Simulated scan of single mutants.
Amino acid sequence: MADPASDSSAGARIEAEALTKIFRGAAGPAVDGVDLAIHAGEFMTLLGPSGSGKTTTLNMIAGFEEVTSGRILLDGSDLVRLPSYRRNLGMVFQNYALFPHMTAADNIAFPLRQRKVGKKEIARRVGDALELVHLGEHGNRLPSQLSGGQQQRVALARAVVFAPRALLLDEPLGALDKKLRESLQLEIARLHRELGITFVFVTHDQEEALALSDRIAVFRNGRIEQVGTPAELYETPASHFVATFLGDSNIFTGQVRGGLVDTGWCELHARAAADTDGTGPVALVVRPERLRLGKPGGPGANVLSATVTHVVYQGAFRRVFVRFDGGVTGQIRDTATGEGRTVAAGERVEVHWAADAGILVPDDATAGHDPQALAVTS
């Protein structure tokens, strides 16, 4: 294979068209007609629970899984029949996948030797890659002599040393503890900025996805439920599933009647409710930070009575868990300092939020799991 360019000034555009994967003997497709366009140079995260199809999609892009049907395009060229080693894509795994008998420098040099790069050029690129991941003085160490975080840095360096147009990362931080994971999140974000190439990142960690991504594709049952920026998905989820999977939510289900959400035990004001009378079962989604304890200061707010079940102190804020009088459980994210009132388990409280603080989405349990069944999220 020809030596790739040593300076990749822009990432590749990756497109999946009707991408499908059916494993032999499986009851249904692991990936079911996925369409996804990943922009050149963007950080795209594939997010979803175990078995949702995100890793299988990544493996088909990488060439590690055969495609049952559909196309994968890299800058317009179909990759489906191209073997993985000819796709010029970097890959980072959760388990590092380093050669234990090779030093960090030799691990990083391995893809360059496979590409028949000259010795002087290999030495230069390996040195640059070690500096890029802040391991300049660790090149002669074996993986066993490095911490988990350092091993993952070596894996990152090995994946980018040959200047791929895109970097694929399969839950690369899953084996690390929380503090180290957060530290490496910053390093991955820095690498993305400095390299300017396309990153495709698989995770089931919602906070990780929100912190790192330009856009997120939420997977469910082999399909993409919604694609958007972190803010779009958090503020305007397209379905009950997205609202509950990405961040915490208070969910009130019911029917829209007379411009109000009728839950059977209360009636609630909601944005766009007047336009959705009789459209079918809905879920009103309200994020915990939008709820407030006590009576509202003005008219037009939703007010519900509840009983505090428990309170979790988390430093700058506290999570107050409640059971509303209709039996629905919920939570409020409240300031733990300043003027926030103190509440305790068993206390009766009133909870309020503004009518425009919630968003209506289809109730997935009864609306056929169709995120487009009720278009009220704009």
Rank of each mutant, 00 (worst) to 15 (best):
L73W: 01
N250H: 00
R113N: 10
P111N: 04
F321I: 13
A367G: 10
R24G: 15
F324H: 00
Q226E: 05
V351G: 07
R87K: 02
L360T: 01
R113T: 05
V161C: 12
L135E: 09
L156S: 04
P143C: 14
A157V: 03
E121S: 03
S183H: 14
R165N: 07
G118A: 12
I38F: 08
V285W: 01
L98N: 03
L135D: 05
A10Q: 12
F99R: 14
A37H: 09
P172E: 11
P164Y: 15
A211L: 06
E225A: 04
I197W: 11
G148K: 00
P288H: 12
N221I: 11
A336V: 10
L210R: 06
A301W: 13
D334Q: 14
L186H: 11
V312R: 15
G28E: 15
H240K: 13
F317W: 06
L195C: 04
V285G: 06
P49G: 13
G297Q: 00
F99C: 03
S69V: 01
T229V: 09
R13H: 12
H204K: 12
D214S: 13
E207D: 08
S378D: 15
H204N: 08
V256W: 01
S183L: 10
A104S: 14
S147D: 09
I359W: 03
R193K: 14
L142F: 09
A231M: 08
D205W: 05
E347G: 05
P371V: 00
F241G: 08
R141M: 10
R287D: 02
R87E: 07
E289K: 07
S305G: 15
G51T: 15
I61W: 04
I14L: 14
L169A: 04
R113Q: 13
A105F: 02
L180A: 04
V322L: 11
E66D: 14
L293D: 04
L167T: 06
A357Q: 13
G280Q: 11
R13T: 14
F23W: 07
G228P: 11
E66T: 10
D32F: 15
I188K: 02
I108P: 08
V154A: 05
R153P: 04
